[in-house]
């Protein structure tokens, strides 16, 4: 049962990801990205990360992808499907990712991870909230500052002057 779910989700993720990078229509790519993000959220649930799954859906699917679609729509007259969508180096890139994957796979399988067979906390929301407000309060504050800066920066960069 578990294994079946994992393989289904994995198949969805990889397929949709491949389509994201290879579809001619950038808008379709964005849609595929949404699908991919959903599948990843599902994967989080299998990993007992319920809060993260919710955040994934909210932020990625709800915010980032919508932003992407906005950008696609703004620039849509230049993103016609007739023009070439891939640059001149797909073959070298393919070679390199194959080698990279082989290396990574070797590394993963060769490394003996000390897996602890305990059952994780469920639900995680309260624990994450406590951790963010106690142990990780400083990174939390800093990252909120980063978000603010990114917000202001984006406005200034894209502003019509």
């Amino acid at each position: 049962m578990e294994t079946g779910i994992f393989y289904i989700l994995a198949a969805i993720i990889l397929t949709s990801a491949l389509m994201v990078v290879s579809l001619r229509n950038i808008f379709h790519s964005a849609l595929m990205l949404i699908l991919c993000f959903f599948a990843v959220a599902g994967l989080y649930i299998t990993l007992d990360a319920d809060f993260l799954a919710a955040v994934q859906v909210l932020i990625y699917v709800g915010a980032v992808t919508i932003l992407m679609i906005f950008a696609v729509m703004v620039t849509h007259q230049l993103t016609g499907t007739t023009m070439r969508q891939v640059n001149e180096q797909p073959i070298p890139a393919a070679l390199i990712i194959i080698v990279l994957f082989i290396l990574l796979a070797i590394a993963i399988t060769q490394t003996g991870f000390e897996v602890i067979g305990k059952f994780p906390l469920m639900p995680t929301v309260a624990a994450i909230g406590t951790a963010l407000m106690t142990v990780y309060v400083l990174p939390f504050e800093i990252v909120s500052l980063v978000l603010l800066v990114a917000l202001i920066g984006a406005i200034i960069i894209a502003r019509r002057d």
Binding site: S29, L43, P92, I96, F101, I108
Partner: peptide, 25 residues
């Protein structure tokens, strides 16, 4: 392994897509 595959697909997209939005994706 899944994560590594997804990462490699992402790299491929980064290296090959001409559209800037595609690169961001």
């Amino acid at each position: 392994i899944l994560s590594a595959l997804l990462f490699c697909v992402g790299i491929f997209g980064l290296l090959t897509r001409r559209n800037a939005v595609g690169v961001l994706m």
